[in-house]
Write a protein that binds this DNA or RNA. Structure first.
Lengths: 133, 133
DNA sequence: GCGTTACATTACGTTAACGTCATCTTTCCT
DNA sequence: AGGAAAGATGACGTTAACGTAATGTAACGC
């Protein structure tokens, strides 16, 4: 990482385990805004923060478009505050969605554990029978 | 639902809020196994249980292929127990993945709440300034 | 000087998960 | 009988999120 706190595309790829194509794609979709030095991209701290959120959002099953809208909340400067309340509503909806997701995840984990217990017993039973035979 | 506990494709669609195309697609992918009466599909209780799990899995971001493998654990009869330990391992991996997902989800919810609080304060500040002006 | 990286742009290809016709039976109603 | 209604099959279309190949250029090592 250079002294001016920017990273090349390769450094970004190594840090976040993504391909160059992905970063260029995200720029085209206006999720990232690397500055240019000549024609080379330089990714700022802001880009890195955004990318972290993008990758997290993806793991939760949000689309890039949904993520793009949410990112505005995290990186809003004074000049954009006009849109704040709209974004604020969006964030609340996402929060509700995520908490519902967590509730269902808890339930699913419980059920899966039950099945695994059943599987464990089943394995034990088979072993007994083998030994007995 | 008929007396023999089966449902037509339409009843399934209404119950689970999916399209006929989706159910036929899942059958083609061997996720569901409706029986046939003439050429009409009849979905059993087992199909309904599987569909519920399929839709849940999708909400958690699993692919249909991943889900298909997991379904075997939930619907294993004695004749299939040979593959049990393989499926058991798979289930354990999925469980680990889901618990990791929950941990990250908790963190993300926390951060999002912070941002929302910031947004709420920002809105309040703007309102004060408007009133003051 | 010049070859090898490192990066760029352009453009066509790919996979998953269905959507959307178009065209046929089967069945039920009047 | 005859015409909707429900369901089936087959095939092509669509979107998201990149992959991949072709081609071009700028800087760096020796």
């Amino acid at each position: 990482m250079t002294k001016d706190d920017t990273m090349t595309i390769r450094e970004m790829c190594d840090s976040f385990d993504v391909t160059p194509r992905t970063l260029r794609f995200y720029e085209a979709k206006e999720l990232l805004f690397p500055i240019r030095e000549g024609n080379k991209r330089l990714f700022t701290k802001r880009d890195r923060a955004r990318l972290k959120l993008i990758l997290r959002g993806k793991r939760f099953g949000f689309t890039l478009e949904e993520i793009r809208e949410l990112l505005d909340l995290y990186h809003m400067d004074d000049s954009q505050v006009t849109q704040l309340s709209k974004t604020y509503d969006l964030a609340l909806r996402h929060l509700a969605e995520m908490e519902a997701q967590r509730a269902e995840l808890d339930e699913a984990i419980g059920e899966l554990k039950n099945q695994i217990d059943w599987g464990a017993k089943e394995l034990a039973r088979r072993k007994r029978n083998e030994t007995a035979a």
